[in-house]
């Protein structure tokens, strides 16, 4: 339909269409299985299900462990996202608006926490928290660890946005006498807003699903949702409840995806990862 398509032969286009459809089937079959199993009467998820039940949903609704874990995860993700929003925006503004020695190294440093395997970041922070800072592992240490690897998502989104909008409006604002802070509040910030939301959502998602770094930085009391899931996945009594929680998460994921789709330019950050 679009003019580009003329550049490819019809057979090739058909092949791409079939391959894409197949890939989507493979992507969604496991998710569908999780949904079906949340109603599967068999506790060991016998396939195909011989009978369907709502029992797991009822039990999940009563599960205090699951609820506590969700609350902890939401709190951690919110605070970690807030920290990474501030730090990521500052770093992006510095790197986009200034040329200075070591600029490349700084951008590498921001990517590093997510480019290095999680287990390395995990034990490095675990060691530093306990021996260097003398902290007890707990809520605070999880938040610090998560913020460290979330900065990059905000950074990428804001950087892409700043690159696109340029500095003309900010200069105009300064010429008209606005102070640095007023310009930021009335000009820069509104231009960045949707990029901040997209980056913040990604940071939230990244934190919410993280388990490896969390394993090493969580104390014995705190259970984030992924840790709760890991502890319960292999327990025959709990596995069906874990399935229900997973289905709820898949359903809830519609909200952030809907928000990010509502925002213009939201894809640049998503693709940026």
């Amino acid at each position: 339909m679009r003019s580009t398509s003329t550049a490819m032969s019809p057979a090739f286009k058909m092949t791409l269409r079939v391959l894409t459809a197949l890939a989507l089937v493979v992507i969604y079959v496991p998710l569908l299985l999780v949904v079906v199993n949340s109603f599967n009467a068999s506790q060991t998820f016998a396939w195909p299900p011989s009978d369907l039940t709502l029992e797991w949903w009822r039990k999940a609704a009563d599960s205090e462990g699951a609820k506590d874990a969700i609350v902890t995860s939401v709190q951690v993700a919110l605070i970690a996202s807030a920290i990474s929003l501030v730090l990521g925006t500052m770093a992006a503004m510095a790197l986009q608006r200034y040329r200075f020695f070591g600029r490349d190294t700084v951008s590498l440093l921001i990517i590093l926490p997510i480019a290095l395997p999680g287990i390395v970041t995990g034990i490095a922070l675990n060691n530093a928290f306990r021996t260097v800072f003398g902290l007890d592992l707990g809520f605070l240490t999880i938040v610090v660890a998560h913020a460290t690897f979330c900065i990059v998502t905000v950074f990428n989104n804001v950087l892409a946005r700043l690159r696109r909008v340029g500095t003309n409006l900010e200069e105009a604002s300064a010429d008209l006498g606005a102070s640095t802070f007023t310009t930021f509040r009335l000009v820069t910030f509104p231009m960045m807003r949707s990029a901040l939301i997209a980056g913040g959502l990604l940071a939230f998602a990244l934190s919410f699903d993280e388990i490896i770094v969390t394993t090493f930085t969580a104390g014995p009391q705190e259970q984030t949702l992924p840790i709760w899931i890991f502890n319960n996945l292999f327990r025959p009594n709990q596995a069906p409840i874990v399935n229900v929680v997973a289905v709820v998460l898949i359903l809830l994921s519609v909200i952030p995806i809907w928000i990010s789709q509502k925002l213009a330019g939201a894809t640049d950050g998503l693709a940026g990862r």
Partner: peptide
Amino acid sequence: LVIAVLTPLWASYLVKAYA
């Protein structure tokens, strides 16, 4: 399609591996 590719990222990593 962008949404379809993104959605699984929000489902728990552990649950997908377990699936």
